[in-house]
Simulated assay, not measured.
Amino acid sequence: METNLKSKAVLITGAAKGIGRETAIAFGREGSRVALFDIDEAALAEASAAVTAAGGTAATFKADLSSAADIEEKVTAAIAHFGSVDVLVNNVGAGAVRTFDQLTDAEWDKTFSLNFMSYVRTTRVVLPVMRKQGHGAIVNNGSDLARQPEGVPIDYSASKAAVLALTKGLARTEGANNIRINAVAPGPIWTPFWTQPGGFAETMGKFHNMEPQKAVEHEMSLRQLPLGRLGKPEEVANVIVFLASDLASFVTSSVWGVDGGSIRAIA
């Protein structure tokens, strides 16, 4: 089946590592022109090389995606570089395991600034271009915790629920402009989001008073995933590429779970 993504201009936030990196490479395999945004310049360079090796064209933009000014400047520069934007993948995010009582206002603001407002701000820059072109696709990275929240991390869950509301709301208004807006909702995916210092695994270990790996195994047993394992970033990337492609031409306002069966609800 043909995705028709060859030469399409694709913008991906949080593209240096994890799901973002694998998504960039997946678009590279389709022959897309990919703009990668991240604050980690060294990892961006490595990811860019991987996109090129996969058969795509890559451009990198070091950006603080919690900064409104940086987003506007760098996303505008990427659109100018490619001359268009066909696909936006809002992927950047961060989280730590903290209880409601532990969270300060500053920590709530930090979580929402990166995990939600960065999506608002990139979309705000991209939509006028897509409307003028008369087409476009946006894929937002949500979470299974947006649809089935746990007590921790509650700030992360709330920010991702906001992402799904944004997805649904904008899909309603932008359908008339031939712009499709969908979301993926990954479950636990083994990426640097979990493994890096201060990431989910380390903070989960502190919360459960266990070694990080043991804490992750314990958490997975509590969630009772039918597939019994953490996912791989490329498994999410494959769904993102599908949603951005012509194969999903009649798909909008949808939330695609890539979660190993963690969500039990029918809808």
Rank of each mutant, 00 (worst) to 15 (best):
G260I: 03
V10E: 00
I154Q: 00
I138R: 05
E174L: 14
A171Y: 05
E107K: 06
I138T: 02
A42M: 13
G28Y: 02
A80Q: 15
A58V: 11
T191A: 14
T60I: 15
V139K: 04
V163L: 07
P188V: 12
D109V: 10
A59D: 12
N140Y: 12
A183E: 00
D101G: 12
P197D: 05
F193E: 04
V139A: 08
T252N: 04
V129F: 08
G231D: 13
N140G: 08
S221W: 10
V75D: 10
K132H: 14
T191F: 08
A96Q: 14
I138K: 05
E46G: 07
T13E: 11
S32D: 12
L65Y: 11
G136V: 02
A146Q: 00
T111V: 15
L243C: 08
W194H: 11
N209Q: 15
Y156I: 01
E202F: 03
L247C: 07
N115C: 10
A201V: 05
V51W: 01
A80V: 08
W256A: 14
G56S: 09
K74T: 15
R33G: 10
I181D: 03
I138W: 01
A267G: 09
W194I: 06
A158K: 01
P153L: 09
G175A: 09
V120T: 05
R180N: 05
R98T: 14
A267M: 13
F200S: 07
Q148G: 04
V120W: 12
M220R: 07
V163W: 03
I154S: 01
M1V: 06
F207L: 06
G28E: 06
V92G: 02
G142R: 11
S262I: 10
E46T: 07
I154Y: 01
A80N: 08
A201H: 06
A185E: 00
H135G: 10
S262M: 13
A35P: 01
I25D: 04
S48P: 00
W256G: 05
A94H: 10
S143V: 02
T195R: 12
V10S: 04
D105S: 12
M1N: 09
G18D: 12
D155I: 00
A265L: 13
E211I: 08
D259K: 06
K206G: 15
M130F: 08
Q213P: 05
K132V: 12
N141T: 15
D38H: 06
G56A: 14
G228R: 11
L44E: 01
L145G: 01
T60P: 05
P149W: 00
G20R: 02
A16P: 01
G231L: 13
V97G: 02
K132E: 15
A80T: 15
A26G: 06
N182I: 01
I263E: 13
R180W: 04
K74R: 10
A267I: 14
A165K: 07
A35N: 13
A49T: 13
T167A: 11
F242C: 06
I266L: 14
A162W: 02
V258C: 03
L44C: 03
A54S: 10
F116T: 07
W108C: 05
A146L: 04
L225G: 14
N178C: 05
I189R: 01
V129M: 13
L103Q: 04
V87S: 04
P226H: 07
D259F: 03
A80S: 12
R124K: 15
E72C: 08
